[in-house]
Each structure stands twice: as C-alpha cells, then as structure tokens.
Design a protein around this nucleic acid. Structure first.
Lengths: 247, 247
DNA sequence: CGCTGAATTGAGATGTGTCAATGGAGGTGG
DNA sequence: CCACCTCCATTGACACATCTCAATTCAGCG
C-alpha cells in the first residue's frame, strides 16, 4: 500500500512529461490497429494526437478501483497487473498487461480493479471522451477494437477453466507455457522471463505463494525447468509442461 | 451425449421454420441495440432481415467446439450453457446465456466451446459475414456491441475472482445473488428460478455436485433460503447471502 | 555487515473431492 | 393405476490436495 499513489495525483508530472512526446515504440498490435484505422483519413493521426505518453514507476498504482472512469491507457512498454481485492484482503489478479494491451476501456462509470505497474512502464493515455468519439466515428477502428476484446475474452475463458477445473500443477504449467513464444520449436529449450513475483503468480492462479514455490521446486526436480534466477526460467521440456497443462 | 445433435444437422428444419417468421419477442437489449442502429438508415431493418429465428430443443448442442465459426446467434428466449471440456472429461461452464445475449461473436476461425441448450430456446441466427458487414459499416452498432462485450468481460472477471479466491459457500452465495433482480428490496423475500441442474452449477463454480448440494442444505438449515423445488429457491435473507458473497 | 523483502522448505490442519449408498420425482409400459 | 426405471439430488464416511503457520535461506542494497 506504500506504493499506492494514483495517477490523478501526478497530473503535474504528466503535463511536463507529455509536452510533445511522440510515441516511442511501435508494437505489432499498434501497426495493426493503425493499419485498420488509416482508411479513414486522419483517424490514425487522431489516435496518436489525442494520446499522451506517461512514465510509471515500478509499484505505482495507475488506476484505483472506484475511480471515475475517464481515461483509457495503452501499454507501450512494461508489465502491469489488474487487481481485485475482497474486503478481507484476499487478492486476485485477473490479468497481466503487456505492450499492446489497452486498459480502462470498459464503459462502466467506475473502475472495478486496480491497475499497478510491476515494472517501470511507458503508457499512452487517452481521454475517454476522445477515445469514444473515435470509436463512434470510425467503424473500422471499433471493429478492430472488438477483435482485441474478443481475444481478451478468450484468454479470460482459458483462465476460468484453469481456476475452475485444473490442479495447481496444471495451472502453473499453463501459466509458464503462456510465456513461450508461439513459434518455439517443440524439442528445443526456451528461456522465459517472469516479470512478476511469486505472490503475483499465486494471486493470478488462485494459489498461495508456498504452493507456487513448491511446484517450481517439483518441476525443477523432474528436470522440466531450471531457474536462472527466481524470475528467469529455462524450460527444459516443453512436452512435459504441455502434457501437464492438458489442453 | 444422446442429445448432442448439432444445428447443422437440422438445416432442413430451420428452413421450414424460418420462412418469413418475424422476431417473436423483443428484449430490452434488443430495443437498445436497434435504437442505436437506427441512425444509419435501414441498419435496424438490416439486422432483422439478415437474421433467422430457430427453435432449439432442451439438451441440444447448438455449437460444437472445433466447428468453423460462420454463424452468430442471439438468444431470444431460453437458457444455454457455454461449455469447455478437458481431454480427460473435466468440464467447465464459462457462462449461462440468457435472452439478449449473443454468442459465436468471437472472430476466431474455430469455436472454442460447446453451446448447449438447457431449456428449449428461441434463437436468432445470423451469417457471420452479414454480421461483420454490419459492424464494419455502422460505427454505432459496433460501439453498442463493444458495450455488451465489456459487460461480459466484467462478469467474467467477477467469476475469476470467485473461482480464484472465494470459498465454496461464497461462490454459491454470489451465484444465487446473480439471479436476484437488481431492484429487489433488501428486506424482502425473493423467489428465483435456477434453470440449470446441480452439475451445471457445480461445473460453473468449479465445485462438485455433492459440495453444491451440501451447501444448499447448509443454507437451508441456517434459514437463508428455502427450496420450493430443486430448481426454485426462495431467498429468505438477502443480507446473509450478500454478507457471505463478500463483495 | 546487517537489514529487508522475497523465496523456499517443513509440519500439521482443513476444505473440498471421491466413492458409495439412499431418496425422490417424473416418465413409461403393462 | 401400479411397478419399474432412470435421472437427479441428497447424505455419509473417508482421502487428499492445498492452505496455514512457522522457520530458514537467499538476494539485493545501503
């Protein structure tokens, strides 16, 4: 909670940061999105023009549950977590946000979750109003956004299946596999980077830190993985993990 | 599995059923959706014209996982379940579909879940192509659809929190409360109808039939609910359930 | 070098699952 | 109309995966 400082308290910082800062990075989704928007003359420029780049420190809270929902963000760089907390303190992480992901899109008047930076982040911030105008004016932009949201919905449903019906080992295997690039050859070893700590993994998978830790040890003993350091995992047997993940 | 007969096997039936059948019912969402579409001349008519009404028997499978995704459905009446099954048979129900809900919207080329009728259903079926055309042509329609999908995403996240961090009792309490109309007075008793059987509830909440059954007994013993029959629940204490649901 | 937070490991507790038996409602055929 | 069947729900006894509590190790850092 020491880190919990909302963006709105930092408005002054943003203004100085934002003065005519161009979008620094272009993700695949970015190009795609712009590509679709382009057909409407000026729409791509519009999306760029209405956004401001903001820098977020590790641990900082970007959105607080209950805030009025007036801003939309796009992750340019870094990783964030989407957190819900029950009154008694139990915590769940619905999603980790990566470069290319949007958040704050929901049309609810209040934000329903906290969004907190796990690493230092570069975000593009839009005024909700501007974003809505774009969506309402440009069908192709809306259609593209719909596609992103459906992809999110699918990921969500996979996680539901994990939490509802998979064992702890299976959940962790699925989780680790979600970091493996799609094109990774089945026989080959891969190294993946977990930007989040054990408690974030636990709260994402509906487990405890201890269980996650024990499972990692188990996977290591079976020579399925190796730890370079606690955040860097060398996968020795994709096959074993895939078989365990069971879908 | 005896009931599992896909829609495609019934094409003949549909054709006869559909011959100039108007949309029989109008749900609130329907009016809303049309209301938004209207500004573009003919769009509302278009959505009606391109859809065909189909009747589905209880237990019938409307969509099978792995099918190519060429149709979009809207529920006019009845209840369906969205089912994922792991290779070893474990089952999870991501969502129950009610009047006004769409399904088959995802842009994935293959359907990822089964959709099965829990009660006899009336659906409107659209060709994916026609639906896409509408979305791509009419920004307001797309924006309205986006809103529906975000509402879905929010429900999804609530369920994630339940499955990840709530106890069995809390999950069941939340589930029961989701059937209580929003305007129900806190002090008053309410009767709700659960169209699905215990195993559907269990597979939705990540529990077993036995646990659900035991919890219902527990709730009954504490005078929080009463069973009219196994599918009809009289809620005696909304407060107790709300406190238990814990959000 | 000690401090602090994160990760690991161990021992025991417990919530929920598993297996098995019983009960009840609705449908069907004699 | 009754007997039977089947499906669904309930209840009980026990097992086990995961949690809880607690101690230890490890890594980073001033």
């Amino acid at each position: 909670m020491a880190h919990a400082q909302t963006v709105t308290h930092q408005a002054a910082n943003y203004r100085s940061l934002n003065a005519s800062v161009a979008l620094a990075k272009t993700t695949p989704e970015d190009r795609e999105f712009k590509g679709i928007v382009v057909p409407m003359p000026g729409a791509a420029d519009c999306l760029q023009r209405i956004g401001r780049t903001v820098q977020i420190d590790r641990g900082q809270t970007v959105v607080t549950a209950g805030d009025t929902n007036t801003q939309v963000f796009k992750v340019q760089d870094g990783v964030l977590r989407v957190v819900r907390i029950l009154p008694d303190g139990r915590r769940h992480i619905a999603k980790f946000l990566n470069a290319g992901d949007f958040f704050g899109l929901s049309d609810a008047t209040e934000c329903d979750s906290n969004v907190e930076a796990i690493t230092p982040c570069t975000l593009t911030r839009y005024q909700r109003r501007d974003f809505d105008n774009l969506i309402n004016a440009d069908a192709a932009a809306g259609a593209q956004l719909l596609r992103l949201v459906f992809r999110q919905l699918d990921l969500n449903n996979r996680l539901l299946l994990s939490l509802g019906r998979k064992t702890a080992s299976e959940r962790l295997a699925s989780f680790l596999l979600s970091f493996v690039p799609r094109n990774a050859a089945t026989g080959r070893e891969t190294t993946i980077d977990l930007p989040m700590c054990r408690s974030d993994i636990a709260d994402h998978l509906g487990l405890t830190i201890e269980t996650v830790s024990r499972l990692i040890t188990k996977f290591r003993q079976r020579r399925w993985i190796n730890l370079i350091d606690s955040q860097t995992v060398r996968i020795l047997s994709l096959e074993a993990l895939e078989e365990l993940a069971a879908d």
